[in-house]
């Protein structure tokens, strides 16, 4: 069953991305005034996917603390790794766009800085997980860090709006002051869905790997005990 869900989600994700690519390049009108605007259809959904991941990781960490079930810890670890990967996609696409539009790879604008901060915080989470050997201790320490991290994401994200910024205004109309042309926004949401599918597949694969590695670990301990 789990295998089937994984395959279905993977196929759905790939199909959605293909369809979106077709729409972005052939259906949407080319906009002359915004350079290389197509990348925004991957840049923005990657950021939303990353933040979704951080938030789900917070819930999973809370569930681990409430139940003590290491399955939730594996879930939190998997989803944080995937979210960090999507945050990297966001940073990389942003840098490519910045080189094209602004002529520089990186600007110390608030939004770039805050995404980098979140990336570093969760990279710290992943480094912490490697530094602890004992599974229960690792789960507890990383759950604590995940709670702190998610609260801090809100702080970092909020500070965007108070800092003078050269980042383009929010492109989504759900946020105040944002909004693209009519019909231009939909692929962002479709790509978000595609990325969620892909992220879920990656998390399932990662969770299975985490479970197997825990099993190997316990077998190794048993072998040492005898």
């Amino acid at each position: 069953m789990r295998e089937k869900i994984t395959y279905v989600l993977a196929i759905a994700g790939i199909a959605l991305v293909t369809w979106n690519l077709y729409k972005i390049f052939f259906v949407l009108p080319p906009e002359a005034n915004v350079a290389a605007y197509q990348i925004v259809y991957f840049h923005v959904p990657a950021a939303i996917t990353a933040f979704t991941g951080f938030f789900v990781a917070l819930i999973a960490s809370g569930l681990y603390l409430a139940t003590g079930d290491l399955k939730f810890d594996a879930f939190a670890a998997g989803i944080t790794e995937v979210a960090v990967a999507f945050a990297s996609v966001n940073l990389a696409t942003g840098m490519i766009w910045a080189r094209y539009a602004w002529g520089i790879w990186w600007a110390w604008d608030a939004r770039l800085t805050s995404m980098l901060t979140c990336w570093l915080m969760y990279a710290g989470y992943l480094i912490l997980r490697r530094a602890v050997d004992e599974p229960t201790q690792r789960a507890k320490l990383s759950a604590f860090l995940s709670i702190f991290g998610c609260v801090n994401v809100a702080f970092v994200y909020k500070s965007i709006e108070w800092f003078r910024t050269q980042h383009p205004a929010p492109v989504l109309s759900v946020r105040q002051g944002g909004g693209m042309g009519p019909g231009m926004e939909a692929p962002i949401y479709w790509n978000y869905l595609a990325m969620l599918c892909i992220a879920t597949v990656l998390v399932i694969v990662r969770m299975r790997q985490e479970g197997v590695s825990r099993e190997i670990d316990s077998l190794r301990r048993m072998a040492h005990a005898y």
Partner: peptide, 29 residues
């Protein structure tokens, strides 16, 4: 933040290394 993370890292192998890695990004706001 520092005291909480000091408690978090106290039993880790790379204690002196882990504390700044975790603390400084959190302290950015």
């Amino acid at each position: 933040i520092g005291t909480a993370f000091s408690a978090l890292t106290v039993n880790l192998r790379m204690r002196e290394l882990m504390l700044p890695i975790l603390t400084y990004p959190f302290l950015i706001p």
